[in-house]
């Protein structure tokens, strides 16, 4: 089915565009809106947004592929993002990542078969004083230990820690 921007989206989009003197400046916030609804930005959604903002499709695709937070395919319900930069590295991030891989039975960039977890590594999350840090969807989990990590995964599996998308 072809992708169609909803009237609700268009109303919100008009409001967001009004913050800028040129409406194409709203491209990134609008992509964030679309991703917020679907969990990812599909090719068809890029095309529809390009038409809506009267932009070349290549401009939209270029932006989506430049920024790491845009997903071009659906992810698991919980996107686990382990920081691998220097402070988290020194605080044991490699061991935490290894533990997650083993526990979930997946490698970086993969999603568990039940569609619950996607595992990624990310660069500095800006929370180095509470390293090691993991971001699950939009929430930060800091000062992680193997025990806290296990508890988090169990909670997520049992729906005990509802996260925003």
């Amino acid at each position: 089915m072809p992708f169609k921007l909803t009237e609700e989206f268009k109303a919100k989009a008009a409001h967001i565009c009004a913050r800028y003197p040129r409406k194409d400046a709203a491209l990134i916030p609008l992509l964030q809106e679309l991703q917020g609804q679907a969990g990812f930005v599909a090719e068809e959604a890029m095309d529809a947004l390009a038409q809506y903002l009267e932009l070349p499709y290549a401009r939209v695709k270029g932006v989506v592929t430049f920024y790491t937070m845009f997903n071009r395919a659906p992810l698991g319900k919980y996107h686990l993002q382990v920081c691998r930069n220097i402070s988290c590295h020194m605080a044991g991030a490699p061991a935490l990542l290894g533990r997650l891989k083993e526990k979930l039975g997946i490698a970086e960039g993969e999603t568990t078969k039940d569609g619950l977890f996607t595992l990624s590594t990310v660069e500095c999350l800006g929370a180095c004083g509470t390293a090691p840090v993991l971001q699950a969807n939009e929430d930060y989990f800091e000062n992680l230990t193997p025990e806290k990590l296990d508890a988090l995964i169990d909670d997520l599996k049992h729906g005990k820690h509802p996260l925003k998308r």
Binding site: R22, D24, A26, I28, L31, Y67, T68, F70, C124
Partner: peptide, 19 residues
């Protein structure tokens, strides 16, 4: 922003802010 360290550089930030 949408995930890019380079946008901390002020002119990259402006580009990003312009979409």
């Amino acid at each position: 922003g949408a995930g890019a360290y380079i946008c901390g550089e002020e002119t990259a930030l402006l580009e990003s802010l312009e979409g």
